[in-house]
Amino acid sequence: NGDSLKKVCTIIKESTGAAAVSITDKTKILAHVGLGSDHHISGDPIQTFATKEVINSGQMRIMNSPEEIECSSEECQLKSGLIVPLKEKDEIIGTLKLYFAKRSGISFTHEKLAIGLSQLISTQIEISKVGKLEELAAKAEIKALQAQINPHFLFNALNTIVALLRVNPNSARELIVNLSTYLRYNIEETSTFVDISKELQQVKSYVEVEKARFGDKLNVIYDIDESIRVKIPSLIIQPIVENSIKHGILKGSGTGNIVISVKKHNSDEIRVSVEDDGIGIPQSFIENLHAGKIKENKIGISNVDNRLRHIYGSGLSIERLDVGTRVSFTLNMSA
């Protein structure tokens, strides 16, 4: 079904200010949200000549007037727009379209953002080898953590990509891959346990996206015993790291260090810890966490604590340091 594609279009529309957003394959409309939805209908053949031209040429096209859009409906209210191709490897598989309700409504920012979005979607398709976004959307509802991918984080990352595309295209491409890896893991990973190396790769992808945005303000050190081979609960480390960045570093001076450590605690156990030198966690938060009184907007760290308690019998250890906070947990190697 097209519900998941409609969700994608809705997020893009709300975040870009477009009057309408559409995704097509090579012959038909897969989803259309916004102005013109009365005749740009999912499942119907592509309505505009401009879209067919982009599919044939593989080149982005900007239309500043209805005459350039060439919609088959005479009553179409779409006045300007831009169309970018979606690709799997070198093959054109469809288009992403942003439409506006006024003539010449496309800004330079819209142009670069559309390019970044198309590259993100195309890279995601190429990496995952699946074009079934409806399956991904269904899986995204399985876990509370997966459902809470922050749209602000996503579009801050996209804005960073847009900026890098102008000055450092190679870095932009690396960031697209890191963002795609992060999103793919959050959406696709439905296993209860994963290899710790896979979990750490997701953490590193997340960190690289944030470092691209904050630059030298954020320093992350990995102290990892590479000899450790163990399966751990999926999506268990990244929320702790995100909490350190958002509530430790950024709410403090805005600059700081995070150390992510995975070490053998003894012959039977490993310890995972995330330590920052940020503003420090309030004692009230620690007390509320252990009392199960964390508000829903803090569900990330609460979710981790609850899952660890359910699986292992003990949750997170949170320590207030002289400077900053250390959050850790211990796992049995044979678990």
Rank of each mutant, 00 (worst) to 15 (best):
T160Q: 10
V54K: 01
S37A: 11
Y222I: 08
P151N: 12
A114Q: 08
I279P: 15
V194Y: 01
H39L: 00
T27L: 13
E174V: 13
Y312T: 15
V220G: 02
E126D: 15
K204C: 12
S171P: 07
K204T: 11
K6E: 15
S65N: 11
G17E: 13
E188V: 03
Y222E: 10
A140H: 08
L331D: 00
R309N: 14
L136T: 07
T255A: 09
S302C: 03
K87D: 07
S73W: 07
T27C: 13
G324Q: 00
F155Y: 07
K293Q: 11
T192S: 07
S73Y: 05
L120N: 13
T109D: 10
G2V: 05
R307P: 04
G34P: 07
R166M: 07
N288D: 15
K28C: 10
E208H: 05
I125N: 09
T16M: 11
N156Y: 09
E134A: 10
A137I: 11
G116W: 04
S253A: 03
I224D: 14
V194M: 08
V323H: 15
Q201C: 11
I196Q: 01
K132R: 09
L235V: 13
V203N: 08
I161E: 05
S273T: 00
A20P: 10
Q47A: 12
E88T: 14
V304L: 05
A31V: 10
F100N: 14
S227G: 11
N64V: 08
N150M: 01
Q202N: 13
G278Q: 00
G254P: 00
L308A: 13
G58Y: 04
V323Q: 13
I176K: 03
I29S: 12
N56E: 13
I93K: 04
E188P: 04
H290M: 06
L321V: 09
V21Q: 14
I318Y: 02
N168D: 15
Y206T: 10
S191N: 06
A157E: 02
A20R: 05
H152T: 09
I318R: 08
M60A: 12
E134D: 14
L218F: 00
S284Y: 10
S22N: 01
E126N: 15
E70V: 15
V54W: 01
T51H: 02
E135T: 13
H310K: 14
C76P: 09
K204E: 15
V272G: 02
V8Y: 01
R166L: 12
T10C: 12
G278C: 00
K102S: 13
R61P: 04
I245C: 09
I294D: 13
A172Q: 05
N170P: 03
N150S: 05
L133V: 06
F214W: 08
D225V: 09
N64P: 03
G280D: 02
S107I: 09
I55M: 11
K293C: 11
E70N: 14
S261V: 03
K112F: 06
V130I: 07
K263V: 01
A144L: 06
L82G: 14
L183C: 11
G2Q: 13
Q283S: 04
K211W: 07
H290V: 07
S234F: 01
I260L: 01
S328K: 05
K26T: 12
E74H: 08
I260E: 00
G2W: 05
G313S: 10
R307D: 15
V327W: 00
I196E: 00
I46V: 02
S180H: 06
G215E: 14
F285H: 12
G278V: 00
T48D: 09
T330H: 12
M333K: 15
P282G: 09
